[in-house]
Simulated assay, not measured.
Amino acid sequence: MQLETYISDLLYRYDCVTVPQLGAFLTNRVSAKLHESTHTFYPPKKVLSFNEQLQNNDGLLCNYMAEIEKIPYQVAVEKVAKQVRAIKSYLIEGETITLQNIGELLLNAEGKILFEPSYNVNYLTDAFGLSHFNAEAVQREVYKETVEAIEAKAPIVLTPEKRSSNWLKYAAAAVILLGLSGFVVTNYYNSQIEQHNQIAHEQANEQLETKVQEATFVISNPLPAATLTIEKQTGNYHVVAGAFRVEDNSTKKVKQLREEGYKARKIGVNRYGLHEVVYGSYDNRRDAINAMYSIRKASNPDAWLLVKQLD
């Protein structure tokens, strides 16, 4: 199945790969760890999981398929949908679907899809080339008994050394005298500087007041007032260009559409955590529908209308 190859390729670069109408494969980074009983070191990795609730097409898988197979995007969407229908039919018949390097899918008694991940591949590129390995436990020798025996035979006695402390007294007195004299000199120097600065500050204020009183300002040719016109898009009808898992991709899409002449912008993150990009927003539903049909005919057959009140 070619679909599993595309999913596996995307899992190296993205944390979520959605298969439309089937579910999303998610990755969660796990740090390196040591198994205490087996003394096995395991490198960091991405752990796979599956969420059946995330089925809306975010364009990631279909765009990748279209790029690899050199086919139109809509053809890729139909091919994915065909393979998903086949997977669901096998699951209903009670079979287990094995996706190479990804895991196994099967239905439980309630009709929900269960996922058992594969541990053959580590999708964390930072851990490329790393594998688990076993290490022998470090045997540490204890020398406590030997040290106690040596101390019993040759005890070590520490005695304080007797020294004359008279010269220390004189030195301490000299330090105190030097400190006091330095303190007095410093205070006198600081007071002189402060007095000088105060006199200079008063003289500067007198000169400034004189200049202000003598100055007369006359504006004969005032500049015209500047008028800025900022266009802000409003409306609850939005023609959607796409929804992106990575915010940088949505920013690139907005830049591309604006270069093509659209009033594109981002309108926030939807409930699935995807950054939505729109060609434009409209107050009137009919204007939005007309714009959507024009965009579908011109460049993007998957453009669709979203009715949403923005904050």
Score class of each variant (00 low, 15 high):
residue 118 S to L: 04
residue 249 N to A: 10
residue 230 I to H: 10
residue 54 L to H: 04
residue 44 P to V: 01
residue 246 V to R: 10
residue 286 R to T: 13
residue 32 A to K: 13
residue 230 I to R: 09
residue 169 K to W: 10
residue 131 S to E: 15
residue 203 Q to T: 10
residue 129 G to C: 07
residue 89 S to W: 07
residue 126 D to A: 15
residue 289 I to F: 04
residue 299 S to K: 15
residue 199 I to P: 02
residue 10 L to H: 04
residue 252 K to G: 09
residue 2 Q to T: 05
residue 266 K to W: 01
residue 136 E to I: 04
residue 250 S to L: 05
residue 139 Q to I: 14
residue 211 K to D: 11
residue 145 E to T: 10
residue 278 V to A: 00
residue 130 L to V: 03
residue 61 L to R: 00
residue 265 R to G: 09
residue 185 V to Y: 10
residue 266 K to E: 09
residue 236 N to Y: 02
residue 48 L to Y: 04
residue 207 Q to V: 13
residue 148 E to K: 08
residue 202 E to A: 08
residue 110 E to W: 09
residue 126 D to P: 02
residue 279 Y to H: 03
residue 142 V to N: 15
residue 80 V to T: 01
residue 120 N to L: 12
residue 209 E to T: 06
residue 163 R to P: 01
residue 7 I to Q: 00
residue 47 V to R: 14
residue 254 V to L: 03
residue 120 N to F: 07
residue 66 A to M: 03
residue 279 Y to D: 01
residue 82 K to F: 13
residue 30 V to F: 05
residue 134 N to G: 11
residue 272 Y to T: 01
residue 152 A to W: 00
residue 299 S to R: 12
residue 280 G to P: 01
residue 57 N to Y: 01
residue 138 V to S: 12
residue 276 E to R: 13
residue 78 E to C: 08
residue 197 N to I: 14
residue 173 A to M: 14
residue 245 R to D: 07
residue 51 N to I: 05
residue 179 G to N: 09
residue 141 E to I: 12
residue 105 L to E: 03
residue 8 S to K: 12
residue 61 L to E: 04
residue 223 L to M: 07
residue 272 Y to M: 11
residue 228 L to K: 08
residue 47 V to C: 05
residue 42 Y to H: 09
residue 220 S to I: 06
residue 281 S to L: 00
residue 128 F to I: 13
residue 303 A to H: 00
residue 74 Q to H: 08
residue 53 Q to M: 10
residue 279 Y to G: 03
residue 59 G to P: 01
residue 83 Q to M: 09
residue 287 D to A: 14
residue 173 A to N: 08
residue 45 K to Q: 09
residue 302 D to W: 00
residue 168 L to G: 02
residue 121 V to N: 01
residue 1 M to E: 06
residue 47 V to T: 10
residue 236 N to R: 08
residue 161 E to W: 05
residue 195 Q to L: 13
residue 136 E to Q: 13
residue 241 A to F: 09
residue 93 E to W: 03
residue 102 I to T: 02
residue 136 E to K: 14
residue 53 Q to R: 13
residue 38 T to S: 15
residue 83 Q to A: 14
residue 176 I to E: 14
